[in-house]
Design a protein around this nucleic acid. Structure first.
Length: 636
RNA sequence: GCGCCUGUAGCUCAAUGGAUAGAGCGUUUGACUACGAAUCAAAAGGCUGGGGGUUCGAGUCCCUCCAGGCGCACCA
């Protein structure tokens, strides 16, 4: 419909531009709420009426006269309500249009897009909040690819921070372990999860521990052993754990960018030069910030410190340097080394600070999406403002903070996990997850629970199924449930997580979608095994009765929206558009084939018509599943 | 104080300024000898937090009040 809409609006504009001042951007199409109005609707009379100060209805009538005979594809163009211009497609148009274009590839878009997502501190297990980030990020990546963009997926690894030092201290001092013993820890990420919250609790209670940890951090920075080796070991090991976990969920990256390499290569020095030259960063005149270099943040009228009075760099400094590199505005580059090879042979590169294989072409994107929680808006806005202020051009709008709200837990869920709650907390709608306190559902625990539940469901329906097959299908259903769950909410809404909701496989869920497609596939499987009958001739929608035709047409119309829905999802940074579109498509499809049988239909021409429709739906669902990252089980 | 976000059915959530505010769950009722019941059909359930404004048209935009959440460190 994207191309179709473009075609129609161009034609409209070319007819109308002699009498009115309009451009294609003014023409917005929507699907009327009731088919009695037509198939496609535009509000262009309202737009023009406002512009020339006349009544919409009258403008509409004038427009109608001009365009009435200009379109082959419509059987009817009517004016309705206060000035809606409604179009009705000729009976056979949509079906043949969709059949002709079903394998159409999107036009390649120029430039490269970077999507950064996941970016989990490599010091403990990933949790449910990280999963929302990764699922959104990966769906964003897949949607962009679908639209024809070249996408590079990056995952930023903060391997230098205090979080890592916390657990290094915990291992070396608190647990008195050496590197050899640490290497023997089974499921290190889980082990560190508990250790991290224990350390954090001690830090809150005893001040001298903070000092000890700072010492550890310093040793790590100076590459002193055993602290450095331990820190290096755990950050690599935990990172690998995260990478493999995400691979199970169908999520891959192209590049891991390590903070230690940004520091080692002193990217900030290069960034600082640019910031100073553009007078974006300057020495503060505020006596309280004496010796500090700051950036002015206009929106909230404050000065943000970038270089502290002791000349060290704050968090935002590294972020700006990284942002400049992504946008191709920083002189200099990383070196690279392969970190991991996915099971489909896709290589995952990691930055290095010393020469290895510099033969890569990462960075310098024409647009960057940072999938980061809403809480970081403040910092992301500052970076965007910085990019706008550069002499080299206003690049702020190409630096997109793809923001989303947190995953929180319902009080019931927190209690189920064995945490005590104060009466005040118990009345809250939801409770923030906290890696520091260990109050969170670990990603792998959730995935395991989902898989267990799926297996139970699969076996209850297919008691004779081989264990191996059942296991595979259970995993696919679990991942379908997870990926759908993580993008189905508006990005602005906090997900109040509860096992009861998340472990549901009925209704508005991933497994519902999978079930729909599995059943469609099973129809085609049966058709394939039946002897192919003679060609029934060209499709003729007159063969369908009125009731069926209505639903049939409704489905065609809905199918035709796929590309414009993906486009809209990207334009509005709202990926739940894709899930709800898919859900409605499945609902309509189930509704249809429940009423009209396909294999049992005697008339081969009617059967062919029905097959064409569900064949189209099947194709579109495969595309949508690919974008959301939902696997297609062979059966359920 | 400054800045951002949210308030829609009992619950969880949809709705691109557009026509009669929709789904799922839950409740009540029906449909498996069927292309698979993880499905489908049906019923009940709403002054879209309150009040003003803009508009041909407001759940959506503006103002205001009420109720919640989050951010604003020489932490990362």
């Amino acid at each position: 419909m994207k191309y179709l809409k473009r075609e129609i609006s161009n034609k409209l504009v070319s007819i109308l531009k002699t009498d009115y001042e309009i451009n294609p951007g003014d023409v917005q199409f929507s699907i009327p709420p009731d088919r009695k109005f037509g198939d496609l609707s535009t509000t262009i009379p309202f737009v023009i009426a406002r512009r020339i100060q006349e009544k919409p209805r009258e403008v509409g009538e004038a427009i109608l006269k001009e365009i009435k005979d200009g379109f082959d594809m419509f059987s009817e163009i009517k004016l309705a309500g206060g000035g809606f211009l409604n179009f009705r497609f000729k009976k056979d148009f949509l079906l043949s249009y969709l059949l002709e274009n079903q394998d159409r590839q999107p036009e390649a878009c120029p430039g490269k897009v970077i999507v950064e997502h996941t970016s989990i501190n490599p010091n403990k297990s990933a949790h449910i909040g990280h999963l929302r980030n990764s699922c959104l990020g990966d769906t964003l990546n897949r949607a962009l690819r679908f639209m024809g963009y070249q996408v590079e997926v990056q995952n930023y690894i903060d391997d230098t921070g205090v979080q890592v030092a916390d657990v290094v201290w915990g291992l070396l001092v608190l647990r008195k372990m050496n590197l050899r013993q640490i290497r023997e820890i089974e499921n290190l990420a889980h082990y560190l999860w508990d250790l991290y919250s224990q350390v954090h609790k001690m830090v809150e209670e005893q001040e001298d521990i903070t000092r000890e940890i700072r010492e550890v951090l310093k040793k790590i920075e100076n590459k002193q052993d055993p602290e450095y080796s331990v820190s290096d070991y755990i950050s690599r090991e935990v990172l690998l754990n995260h990478i493999q976990l995400m691979e199970i969920a169908g999520i891959q990256y192209d590049l891991l960018v390590r903070e230690s390499d940004i520091i080692e290569l002193d990217f900030f020095a290069k960034a600082a030069e640019i910031l100073k030259k553009n007078r974006i960063m300057y020495p503060s005149r505020d006596p309280e910030k004496e010796g500090c270099w700051v950036i002015r943040y206009d929106r909230e009228n404050i000065e943000k410190i970038v270089i502290r009075s002791d000349q060290t760099v704050t968090y935002i400094g590294k972020d700006i340097a990284y942002a400049l590199w992504k946008m191709g505005l920083l002189p200099g580059d990383f070196y690279y080394e392969e970190f991991y090879r996915y099971s489909d042979q896709h290589p995952l590169q990691m930055t290095r600070s010393k020469s290895h294989e510099p033969e890569f072409d990462f960075g310098h994107a024409s647009r960057v999406y940072n999938v980061i929680g809403k809480r970081q808006s403040y910092l992301q806005n500052i970076i965007s403002q910085v990019l706008d202020a550069l002499e080299s051009g206003n690049r702020g709008q190409d630096f997109v903070h793809f923001s989303y709200e947190m995953v929180a837990l319902t009080p019931r869920c927190v209690q189920e996990m064995g945490f005590e709650l104060t009466p005040e907390l118990r009345t809250r709608a939801h409770i923030d997850v906290s890696g520091r306190r260990g109050i969170a559902v670990k990603a792998d625990d959730l995935m395991e629970k989902l898989t267990e539940k799926s297996l139970e469901e699969v076996l209850s329906r297919n008691p004779d199924m081989k264990q191996e097959v059942a296991d595979r299908i259970a995993r696919q259903i679990a991942m379908g449930a997870l990926r759908y769950f993580m993008v189905k909410f508006n990005s602005n809404s906090v997900i109040a997580f509860d096992f009861q909701d998340a472990l549901t496989f009925e209704g508005d869920t991933g497994p519902y979608l999978q079930y729909t497609l599995v059943r469609l596939n099973s129809i085609f499987k049966k058709i394939g095994s039946q002897a192919d009958e003679s060609h029934p001739g060209p499709p003729d929608l007159d063969l369908l009765d009125e009731k069926e035709l209505t639903i049939y047409h409704e489905l065609l119309l809905h199918i035709s929206l796929l590309d414009s829905q993906i486009e809209f999802a990207l334009d509005s940074s709202e990926l739940s558009v894709i899930t709800s579109y898919t859900y409605v498509l499945c609902q309509k499809c189930n509704h249809y084939y429940h009423q009209f049988s396909i294999l049992a239909e005697k008339n081969p021409r009617v059967r062919q018509l029905r097959l064409s429709l569900i064949g189209l739906i099947r194709k579109k669902l495969e595309v949508l599943f690919e974008i959301i990252g939902i696997p297609v089980p062979e059966r359920m």
